[in-house]
Design a protein around this nucleic acid. Structure first.
Length: 723
DNA sequence: CGCCGCAGGCTTTTT
DNA sequence: GCCTGCGGCG
């Protein structure tokens, strides 16, 4: 068989990785832009076509659905076949699949449902009410991150001991209650998926053996992002027979704050002493100057596995550095640069504007809006996270599982059907006293006639509605069931009769949900069908929340945080807000480990750029409504001066803070000024117009003078000369 | 039941 | 400065 297509076009390091001995573990240190996905996909093809390993014996794990589907697509292309039965997916997707297959062995009900982060937070809030704990003393978000971080470390409440202080004790106690609560409701959160799957294997050796016999090769993408439980899960599965082929870059580990352990990749060569390490250092993305900057930055970190990117392409243009007066000036600079380049014939989607925190996007958006430049902001609400979609899904969840209290609370009065807080509290109390689910409690409360006729009527109508939906949906396709639920719950009508753009878009989203269900229903029936389509669809919605923005194919500038930029590349990259306190963020500057992660984040940002990288920092910036003056980021100082070119601002002094400089201050026909303009005053000398109030002759103008400082002057008398 | 006003919080994000 | 959640009022 001709296998040249698998090895042709690979560089030496890539080929070494792809053809690494099949009986050894492999660690592939893949620098940014070094062809990481390529190596993974070609390794799979190599195993299958050269080593004759059945694709069914290969497991490929990624973090995101996007990465998983890209890998699948490219593998199908290279192997020229449809890989319907191949195990390629995210950690959560694969663990979930295993749990579905062995639900009862994992001590889960057949139709267990998945809580996304928002569901989890709501669950915690409800739990706090039940436990009569004050949210201000026990912040739900803090509890959520506590529980998740413990689960990420593989720790159950009983493994946490008694707790060293009252706070810890309470946290452990809440964690305990939370577990009971979820178990009873038949729901599991994201972290629980991994933890359960791990425990399933530890507790059921025969089930583990089944998987161990099946998989001979386990490939892992973005290995530097694995947390403790993920690595433990991989190690258990690999056992003594399967070989791990892990690909990652310790220099791009930027998710420590959500449990990722850079130690996993650092220690891999020690954990598997017989493993082979291959470094991919040739970069096919960026210019020499960009790589020089990236290498220089990352060299300031210690305990690296070590790697230096190089390119056979030229040096390219130097990096530009712009010192802005403030964030408005910075945004204007970025936008005018983009406009210039677009005028030269570049497409807008070639430009990415990156920033450390989401709050920075607003000013950039305003500047783009003002300039009429189309843009797209990454992040934000995803399709299956929208409130109206989650309302609809909650009905579907309730159909599947009446004990899902979260789903019930969500829809019992949505749209309003006369079941108020008072009635609900009676139900909650009943549920709590009898250890019932809310659904069971409703039935009990109705039996004992504790309620007014009106409330009782509304409640039994609700129960009837859900039961009716359940019954009718049984004989329908997935798409038709969803449509039915939207009709009979009156969710459709609710938004149809509401006016305004918001209601309109919600209605459209609900229609899209029906379409999504229809499509999902037809797609899934073609593959083997382990469960009923509705359960599958609900899991799909939780595990794959969809795109944040609908596919808008308009050519647009891309705005995103540095974190979301990981894995992407753009010809022109702007890295904004390079200031101490913002980047590195003040919350990370003290701790050397966190600072190192900020530096890796900077490295990630720099290596996104293909042709030209422009850095900027602002002397002052509004943060939480206050004006803050900051020093340029230490990361700027860590760059080699010879590859940086400083862009000088036109004026020398502070520019207006609040308003656009295009705004004209008209005093009279002869006198007209603009913000940022240089002026001369008889007494105070030279200055720059900072701000103004009012208009005409009586306008007050604020001028920052070189020697006399800032003054407010009446336009009529100031007699300012433009300079 | 739903709207409005006020107080407090606030890095980064996927599953 | 802006969003969220809660409490009060109509």
């Amino acid at each position: 068989m001709d296998v040249s297509h698998i090895l042709d076009g690979l560089n030496d390091a890539q080929r070494n990785a792809v053809t690494a001995p099949v009986d050894r573990h492999g660690l592939i240190l893949a620098g940014a832009g070094s062809g990481k996905t390529r190596v993974l996909v070609h390794r799979i093809a190599y195993l299958v076509e050269v080593e004759n390993i059945s694709p069914y014996r290969i497991l490929a794990v990624t973090f995101t659905n996007k990465a998983a589907s890209e890998m699948r697509q490219r593998a199908e292309q290279l192997l020229e076949r449809i890989g319907a039965g191949w195990w390629m997916g995210t950690f959560h997707g694969i663990a979930h699949r295993i749990l579905r297959q062995h639900a009862s062995a994992a001590n889960l009900p057949e139709g267990f449902q998945i809580l996304d982060s928002e569901d989890q937070l709501r669950t915690i809030r409800r739990l706090l009410k039940i436990l009569e704990l004050d949210e201000s003393r026990w912040p739900p978000r803090q509890i959520q991150s506590y529980i998740n971080s413990k689960k990420d470390e593989g720790l159950r409440p009983h493994a946490l001991g008694q707790g060293s202080d009252p706070f810890q004790r309470k946290m452990i106690d809440i964690y305990h209650h939370y577990e009971d609560h979820c178990q009873r409701a038949g729901v599991i959160d994201f972290a629980e998926i991994l933890l359960r799957a791990h425990e399933l294997w530890l507790n059921q050796p025969d089930i583990l053996a089944e998987y161990q016999q099946r998989f001979s090769h386990i490939l892992v993408d973005e290995f530097q992002d694995t947390n403790r439980i993920q690595y433990a899960w991989l190690r258990v599965l690999a056992g003594h027979q399967a070989k791990l082929f892990v690909v990652g870059d310790d220099d791009q580990s930027i998710y420590g704050w959500r449990g990722a352990r850079i130690e996993n990749i650092q220690q891999f060569p020690r954990d598997y002493s017989e493993s082979l390490t291959v470094r991919l250092e040739q970069n096919y993305r960026s210019t020499g100057n960009i790589l020089r900057a990236a290498n220089a930055i990352i060299q300031n970190n210690v305990e690296r596995l070590g790697k230096e990117l190089w390119t056979s392409a030229g040096e390219g243009v130097p990096l530009d550095l712009y010192a802005a007066f403030n964030e408005v000036d910075e945004a204007r600079f970025v936008v005018s640069r983009i406009q210039q380049k677009v005028a030269e014939g570049h497409q807008r989607q070639e430009f990415a504007v990156l920033y450390r925190s989401n709050a920075q996007s607003r000013v950039l958006e305003e500047a783009l809006l003002q300039a009429g430049v189309p843009y797209r902001v990454y992040g934000g609400m995803r399709f299956f996270e929208r409130a109206e979609i989650k309302d609809a899904l909650a009905y579907l969840r309730l159909i599947k599982n009446r004990d899902d209290d979260g789903a019930l609370e969500r829809v019992i009065n949505t749209p309003t059907r006369g079941i108020g807080e008072k009635t609900l509290n009676t139900i909650r109390q009943q549920a709590r006293a009898q250890q019932y689910s809310l659904w069971q409690a409703i039935a009990a409360v109705l039996e004992t006639n504790q309620l007014t006729t009106r409330a009782a009527g509304a409640l039994s109508a609700f129960m009837h509605l859900i039961n009716q939906m359940d019954e009718e949906a049984r004989s329908l396709t997935l798409g038709a069931s969803v449509a039915l639920v939207l009709e009979s719950s009156t969710l459709f009508d609710f938004y149809k009769h509401q006016r305004g753009e918001k209601a309109q878009s919600k209605l459209e989203n609900l229609e899209e949900l029906v379409a999504a269900a229809e499509q999902f229903g037809t797609e899934i029936s073609e593959e083997e069908l382990p469960l009923d389509p509705l359960t599958e669809f609900l899991s799909h919605a939780a595990l794959e929340a969809g795109e944040a923005q609908s596919d808008d194919w308009e050519d647009a500038v891309q705005l995103m945080t540095l974190h979301s930029a990981k894995g992407l590349e753009f010809p022109f990259v702007f890295l904004c807000g390079l200031e101490e306190g913002l980047f590195p963020h003040a919350m990370s500057a003290e701790d050397p480990l966190r600072l190192a992660e900020e530096r890796r984040l900077c490295y990630v940002g720099i290596t996104r750029a293909m042709q030209q990288l422009t850095l900027s920092h602002a002397e002052s910036r509004r943060i939480y409504g206050k004006e803050v003056f900051s020093r340029p980021s230490r990361f700027i100082r860590e760059l080699p001066t010879e590859c940086i070119q400083e862009i000088r601002a036109q004026a020398k002094m502070s520019r207006p803070v609040y308003r656009s400089s295009q705004e004209a201050i008209v005093v009279d026909k002869q006198q007209e000024y603009s913000l940022g303009q240089g002026v001369f005053h008889q007494k105070f000398g030279e200055g720059v117009i900072l701000n103004y109030e009012g208009e005409g002759a009586r306008a007050r103008i604020q001028v920052q003078f070189k020697s006399a400082g800032s003054k407010w002057l009446i336009a009529e008398y100031a007699n300012l000369q433009a300079i």
